[in-house]
């Protein structure tokens, strides 16, 4: 019987190793698996490469990983979110390397990895600092930059509902990077608020099919998005 459900974040994260690359979903707090990332801080893996839209703000989640100095490199589009002091301190101390990627290139490079493509030609960033030294090509009169896929050993994502096969539903703008990161990691671990029985999720509405998800764990967010004002 296929059962991807785990009882605890600790169990679900047991094999995360030093030096692993880790995608973390979320845009701001929406879709950010804070509780799973907090459990990763406790788990202790270090020398990590974190691929996420932001580089952590405040004290929890990615910011807590930064504070504990577990991150060697961040690949993100916007490190300056609210209260980025833990990232800034590590960055200025030279503890963490930053690869800044335009947000759409971050998305399409993650998608390329998930889809098994060798690279993508993207118009975004052409002629800018962020394309310096990269191969370019004119296609049908427009200039493009060659960008390589971004894959990861693990993806930590947040969804609303999962069944034991790993089919996922998301909540509102919390979907953001979840579906594409799930496709690009060797092991995708989804934090959800609810478990559903097989067949309970309408197959017409499944957003991430279970093939892209290896583990699901039900975690109660410390703060419920719908009631946090």
């Amino acid at each position: 019987m296929i059962d991807k459900r785990y009882d605890s974040a600790r169990e679900a994260l047991k094999d995360v190793f030093d030096g692993a690359s880790i995608m973390i979903s979320g845009f701001g707090d929406a879709g950010m698996p804070h509780e799973l990332v907090d459990a990763l801080v406790d788990q202790g893996a270090t020398d990590l490469t974190v691929i996420s839209n932001n580089a952590g703000g405040g004290e929890i989640g990615i910011a807590a990983l930064m504070k504990a100095n577990r991150v060697r490199k961040v690949v993100c589009s916007f490190p300056r979110m609210a209260q980025p002091h833990h990232f800034e301190a590590r960055y200025r101390a030279g503890d963490v390397e930053l690869e800044l990627v335009p947000q759409g290139n971050l998305a399409c490079r993650i998608q390329a990895a998930g889809a098994g493509l060798g690279a993508v030609y993207t118009p975004t960033g052409y002629g800018t600092l962020l394309a310096e030294g990269k191969e370019t090509r004119e296609i049908d009169g427009r200039m493009y930059v060659l960008e390589y896929p971004i894959k990861a050993d693990f993806a930590l994502i947040k969804a609303l509902t999962a069944d034991r096969w790993g089919n996922l539903l998301y909540r509102k703008a919390g979907r953001n990077f979840g579906p594409i990161m799930a496709m690009a990691a060797t092991t995708t671990i989804a934090q959800v608020s609810h478990f559903a029985e097989l067949g309970e999720i309408d197959p017409e509405t499944v957003i991430t099919p279970g093939i892209f998800v290896q583990r699901v764990v039900k975690l109660q967010p410390a703060v419920d998005a719908a009631s946090a004002a």
Binding site: F27, K172, A226
Partner: peptide, 26 residues
Amino acid sequence: WDLINAGKQPVTLLAGGAFFHHGDSF
């Protein structure tokens, strides 16, 4: 807080609105 704009401020969704992932958005 699952319904925010690019500046991470709370917003609303109009009737007829839709959600999608970052690949589709970009």
